[in-house]
Nucleic acid binder design. Structure first.
Length: 882
RNA sequence: GCCCGCCUGGCGGAAUGGCAGACGCAGCGGACUUAAAAUCCGCAGCCCCUAGGGCGUGGGGGUUCGAGUCCCCCGGCGGGCACCA
């Protein structure tokens, strides 16, 4: 060793870690040994752990968001495996959806061909990442083996009364004659035709998720490993409201309508009523429109508003006075005008509201616009009832009811009870609980989705496809040159005999919302080749998913639908669980700077060169480039970085290490070239630390000296065991960036120890043994994050060892080495740091205070004033109050 | 508009209510090198009359012996809003 050190020029540069050769080699070795394959039905010898990341949509290439998502999951999977769990970690493809149809229309590629080619590309890219996946479980939701089973599930749900057929509104493009997704509606116009979009009513299939609203809400309490904010968002989405249903009698009937029912959460403010408003889609609005052309025109305008809640709520509040009046339930002889208003949602409550402008902001804005009265009936504490008036803001807090007859003097809560009591006593209404959650409309007028397995027969009505006729497969010969749903204008596909009466009938040509596909894939992964939707022994053993990982953008819909599906599958005898995901982690997005050329066009990062003075120019032309905001990577802004190119240049381990080290995984991370380069240097440094130490290390298996005196060996052993404890804790709490920092600290300690070993005049066996322990620990702790490098280092440290890092148990920290003999205490005077003292861990308080007060700086801060109070937080701080 | 988050040095971030800035990126200085790269060592929140002190976790207030952390208000940025996935 000394020879080498003395004559560096005589030997070649230290061997660098050749990731390009090593990574595929270790991937092949894991596969050869079947390290990550698990059986559908485990034998129970180990506890199970199911790690699942949200499966990708096969857009064609993986993006950094995927790299981040799957790296996070892989760390968990590898760590849990080391902790002795049998880990299932599958991967598949969320393969139905609009982009495939867009590709078909724009480029003439068949959606199936486009999709499966994309899957092949992306599978190859994922494999290069070295993920510990059980690829034998892979499937795509567009595989007929998958969606056929989904059709079977649908038939079970239908039989169990969990499916309904109802009318609902869709965005209709009158030029393209097509239903548009909300994202295809831009500023109220169709994205391709530019035509003003209209709302159109269609008969559609719905899953009765509202039947489970109370359960879906209550069970949130049991999800103790879900982020609070996701549970809050779901609770708000389900939206339980207590209130009252109130019947308002029309002064004169319209068509056959004699009254309007309103749901309100504020029956206490009924005396502050100034108008009643119904949604444009309300039956009363239709009845008025039948005899009032201006009303019909207003309703038609509302129909041009789009169906999204954001569009409705952000639109200017507008209304139409129908001229009708309703009687007030409590005020004898009083009547109020009936309006049609664009901000009233037909889907919520009864589609009608009573307006109390003084105590509801939207009502107030509406009343101000149309000159309707504003009568306060809730008095803020301390306000004078004679002078209290509403200005710009409605008063929505608690207070004392006034101007309200029998409710005067009550608080808001008591007044609500009193109002409901009176409504019930007089037969004009009742207390009621409503939910914001609506039934889940699953019909889509599209080709590239799972066909809904029912048949429309003129004689028998709607007839489910018998199970023995499943799957209802998509036809392959479809024509995308015409607008609309290719299934609908396919020449033969939809024409089938009725299963019941055998007369000519028509297949349903709608396909399922792709959220249906992703609502049960976690269950299918347990027995992916079963000829039933799920194999009982498999799902009972593996479910629930122990750790689910994905983007926060799915916090509501996907997760709620999946929770509903688990319940529906339980009700139909497929599952025994109700909650599919015991643990949830939501990751942040991957962001990057954006760049614009002088002409305003977006540039890819590789087209931009950063100058040392901080400016940026375009590669080749040297024209100036504007460096824009850091934002989510998107194709439209071209601020994307291709994971494949990063792996080519730096290797998968470097990409994984950087993505983990940059920041906490639930926050957005910024991808930077400098950051990747830094990660790359660290992987090389680890390799160097091991190769440089090899000549001094004792043989494999040499135990570290237990009784070493305080010195470099003991210090290194402490650092090693502190690192084990810290990294373990960080991994358990998803603080992967902290785990990285602790590993780096251990690497720094190793480097220092190596320098000491090199500098020593005579070899120190204790230090050498401690070095082996430290390097082996470093290797194993970094295994979940940089798995290929860890295997490489392990094979250098333990030539002839049969087990891979992927097969080793997790290192254990020795508690004796975690204890320090002394602690450093901060000494504060009045909360301000004035000194630090070093005391034995078992020092008594009197000694500590005496030592603290003796500090020169502390004396100066005390300035001779008497000490009123002494606070000692063991191991942390002493605070003296003077 | 409504619901939910986030905000700490030049940058990413760390910190059971207890020494703010661990670890890293960028930077600066040094060693090695003919030179560069790579590597190694060191410095580093801001300000000050530099012993020492003052100010600092988006802004303002509060609770506490003590607040990045808890509470209230405000600002900025982001996610979701039911047919993007």
């Amino acid at each position: 060793m000394n020879d080498t050190a003395a004559t560096p020029s005589s030997s070649a540069a230290p061997p660098r870690h050749d990731f390009a050769a090593a990574e595929p080699r270790w991937q092949a070795e894991w596969e050869r040994r079947g390290c990550f394959a698990v059986p559908d039905v485990p034998d129970g010898s180990k506890p199970k752990y199911y790690v699942l990341e949200m499966f990708p949509y096969p857009s064609g290439k993986i993006h950094m968001g995927h790299v981040r998502n799957y790296t996070l999951g892989d760390v968990v999977a590898r760590y849990k495996r080391a902790r002795g769990y049998l880990v299932m970690h599958p991967m598949g493809w969320d393969a139905f959806g609009l982009p495939a149809e867009n590709a078909a229309r724009e480029r003439g590629i068949h959606p199936a061909k486009w999709t499966y080619e994309n899957i092949a590309n992306m599978r190859a890219e994922l494999k290069r990442m070295g993920l510990s996946l059980d690829w034998s479980r892979e499937f795509a939701t567009c595989d007929v083996e998958y969606y056929g089973q989904q059709q079977s599930l649908f038939l079970d749900f239908l039989a169990a009364g969990l499916v309904e057929r109802k009318e609902s509104w869709v965005n209709w493009d009158p030029v393209d004659q097509t239903v548009l997704a909300n994202e295809q509606v831009i500023d109220g116009r169709g994205w391709r035709s530019g035509a003003l979009v209209e709302k159109k009513k269609l008969s559609q299939w719905f899953f009765s998720i509202t039947k489970y609203a109370p359960e879906l809400l209550d069970a949130l309490k049991t999800l103790d490993r879900w982020p609070e904010r996701v549970k809050t968002m779901q609770a708000n989405w389900i939206g339980r409201s207590e209130g009252a249903r109130v019947r308002f009698r029309l002064a004169e009937p319209v068509a056959d309508l004699r009254e309007v029912e309103v749901f309100t959460t504020r029956p206490d403010t009924l005396f502050g009523m100034s108008f009643l408003a119904v949604a444009a889609e309300h039956p009363l609005a239709a009845a008025v429109a039948a005899r009032d052309a201006k009303a019909a025109e207003f309703i038609a305008e509302c129909r041009r508003m789009g169906t999204s809640e954001a569009a409705i709520e952000q639109a200017e509040k507008r209304g139409y006075d129908t001229g009708l009046r309703v009687a007030h339930p409590f005020i004898e002889g009083a009547s109020f005008p009936v309006w049609i208003a664009n901000f009233v949602l037909m889907e919520y409550g009864t589609g009608a509201i009573f307006g109390c402008p003084a105590h509801d902001q939207r009502d107030l804005e509406f009343a101000r616009k149309y000159g309707l009265p504003v009568r306060p009936v809730v008095l803020p504490p301390g306000a004078d009832p004679k002078t209290f008036a509403i200005g710009e803001d409605a008063y929505v807090e608690d207070g004392t009811i006034f101007n309200s007859g029998f409710m005067d003097g009550l608080g808001v809560a008591a007044a609500k009870r009193a109002a409901i009591e009176r409504l019930e006593a007089t037969g004009q209404g009742k207390g009621e609980v409503t939910w914001r959650l609506r039934d889940w409309g699953v019909s889509r007028q599209r080709y590239w989705g799972c066909p809904i397995p029912v048949i429309h027969c003129d004689a028998c009505g709607i007839v489910p496809v018998p199970k023995h006729q499943l799957p209802v497969a998509l036809p392959e010969d479809v024509d995308f040159s015409k607008p609309g749903n290719p299934l609908d204008h396919h020449p033969t596909w939809k024409h089938v005999p009725c299963p019941r009466c055998a007369r000519p009938a028509r297949r349903e040509t709608d396909t399922f919302d792709t959220f249906v596909d992703s609502s049960w894939y976690y269950a299918r992964f347990c027995s992916p080749r079963a000829e039933v939707p799920v194999m009982h022994a498999a799902v009972d053993a593996w479910l629930p998913v122990d750790q689910y990982i994905g983007g926060i953008e799915h916090a509501i819909l996907h997760l709620l639908y999946s929770r509903f599906f688990a319940r529906a599958m339980k009700a139909t005898g497929h599952l025994k669980i109700e909650e599919p995901f015991a643990g949830l982690f939501t990751q942040g997005m991957v962001t990057h700077e954006s760049y614009r050329a002088a002409d305003g066009s977006w540039l890819y990062p590789e087209e931009v060169e950063k100058r040392p003075d901080g400016t940026a120019v375009r590669v080749g032309t040297n024209e100036p480039v504007t460096v824009g905001r850091v934002e989510a990577m998107s194709k439209s802004k071209r601020n994307t970085v291709d994971p494949g190119a990063i792996i080519d240049r730096y290797g998968a381990d470097t990409a994984r290490w950087f993505i983990l080290s940059d920041n906490p995984p639930d926050r957005d991370m910024e991808w930077t070239e400098a950051g990747v380069a830094g990660a790359y240097r660290f992987t090389q440094r680890l390799h160097r630390l091991v190769t440089a130490a090899l000549p001094v290390l004792p043989p494999p298996g040499t135990p570290p000296a237990q009784d070493a005196a305080n010195g470099p060996a003991k210090a290194l052993r402490r650092a090693t065991h502190r690192a084990i404890a810290a990294v373990t804790e960080a991994l358990e709490s998803f603080a992967f960036n902290v785990a990285v920092a602790r590993i780096r600290e251990l690497a720094n300690a190793v480097a220092e120890a190596e320098a000491q070993a090199q500098a020593a005049t005579s070899p120190d066996p204790a230090l050498a043994a401690a070095l082996r322990e430290a390097l082996e620990t470093l290797t194993r702790l970094s295994g979940p994050m940089v798995p290929h490098l860890a295997e490489e280092l392990w094979s250098l440290l333990r030539p002839g060892e049969t087990r891979l890092v992927a097969e080793l148990p997790w290192p254990e920290a020795d508690p004796a080495l975690l204890q320090a003999e002394t602690v450093t205490l901060a000494v504060q005077v009045l909360g301000k740091l004035r000194a630090t003292i070093e005391v034995p861990v078992d020092a008594d308080e009197a000694t500590i205070f005496a030592l603290a007060e003796a500090q020169e700086n502390v004396q100066r801060a005390i300035g001779g004033k008497p000490i009123r109070k002494r606070i000692h937080v063991p191991g942390r701080v002493v605070n003296l109050v003077v």
